[in-house]
Design a protein around this nucleic acid. Sequence first.
DNA 1: AATTTTATTATGTCGTACATAATAAAGTAT
DNA 2: ATACTTTATTATGTACGACATAATAAAATT
Lengths: 235, 235
Amino acid sequence: MAVELIQEKLKGIETNSLVDRVEARLVELLQSRQLKVGDSIPKEIELAEIIGVSRTVIREALLRLRTMGLIESRKKKGAVITSPDIFGNLSKSMNPYLLDDNTLREVFELRLVLEVGMADLLYNRIQKKDIEELRKIVQDEPTDAENRIFNVNHEIAFHGKLYDISGNETMRKFQKMLLPVFEYVHESGLLKKPASRKKFISHRGLVDILENGSPEMFRNAMRNHLDNHFARLFE
Amino acid sequence: MAVELIQEKLKGIETNSLVDRVEARLVELLQSRQLKVGDSIPKEIELAEIIGVSRTVIREALLRLRTMGLIESRKKKGAVITSPDIFGNLSKSMNPYLLDDNTLREVFELRLVLEVGMADLLYNRIQKKDIEELRKIVQDEPTDAENRIFNVNHEIAFHGKLYDISGNETMRKFQKMLLPVFEYVHESGLLKKPASRKKFISHRGLVDILENGSPEMFRNAMRNHLDNHFARLFE
DNA sequence: AATTTTATTATGTCGTACATAATAAAGTAT
DNA sequence: ATACTTTATTATGTACGACATAATAAAATT
């Protein structure tokens, strides 16, 4: 008995499965600077021989890398290293029904933080035509009375456009993932405090500030605009 | 020939591989609200029979779900639905050598945006002992002359503590992933403009504001504190 | 009743075989 | 000789069957 325990201790870190270890080896290989994006890695069978495991294990390990977006594999050509779309795969796990309440709330917060903090990016990259587009969007800003779906779509159009303007594609993708979760948290009973109907700075107001104001002003205005949401977080 | 074209058209969307479709079915199953975290899904062989494909395909699809953190599978017990650690797997692709330059820059920006925008979370959750801890950290704030590693560690300690205070574990994990990339971008020749040595608001200054100021003040202070970084982005 | 031993079960690993798609090579017609 | 078509080749995709291994349940022993 003690012997087994000792053996277990000695094995120690090596508690991972075979596929785990192979995966680690491969990730190591990819990150080894020698290899750049576009390079291809050995064929499955070759890898199986080199590492000394079956093709099945190699395939499972490669599959993980593929799922993570580290490689792409084409028939005949083998697997090539790709510049991973870091948030590409995340979208599947970013599902309201699968996340626990705390994480949901945190994702909710994350969006607020991003939008309050993005001001400098906006001011440094906004173009005249962006302002025009924003004006067109706010032109038919719905009243509170109109139906919810319409309001939601308008929200998404406006705030989404801001992410576009930020010129940060990564952040934009991130936002697209956060959106459904945000909506869910907003609508579900997760946040105890009801959504206030008070009107703060409008989308129109934000555009005005974006055109004539400063990043500092915009941050405060956005914070104000989002106050309904913030207020629900902090009781 | 025309017939083949028509067939291709008819197949249309179904261009995905078999595993892709099975994966989609399974994700659908997981998200169907009926199932909660902790529930177990049918065995591999059962799934193979139900869906009508080989166990190999089922395994590959399940493996993807596992890689994404949607399920965990234990011997004998089968696979159970888990609350996914949304950023868990992301860390493997968040590697400077695997990301293209543009994405690297965007990740760099992402950190700045988060820290400028996180003020409200801080003010609503900070405790007296947090202030004390921050004071202890800034107490031995290194001078510029001291070695780089020491400076970097101090930076990480201070800003990391801020994320802790934010009470947003998701954001904290996110930051931990962004950190190495941020460091890399900062040190590599990616950003043309050299890092300025000008001194802006110090960590000490940030703590003072955190203790006696407002979220609005903190946002501006943090923006100022990070100005070296911002300045390198916008020429 | 508690502990150990044995059976069972579902995933993990392996090997083989063939299908399929992408490419390269060979062949054919103009 | 060039352009096109056809035929091989190659590496991944899919499938099946077999055994190993670990976790649990059932049985047996004390």
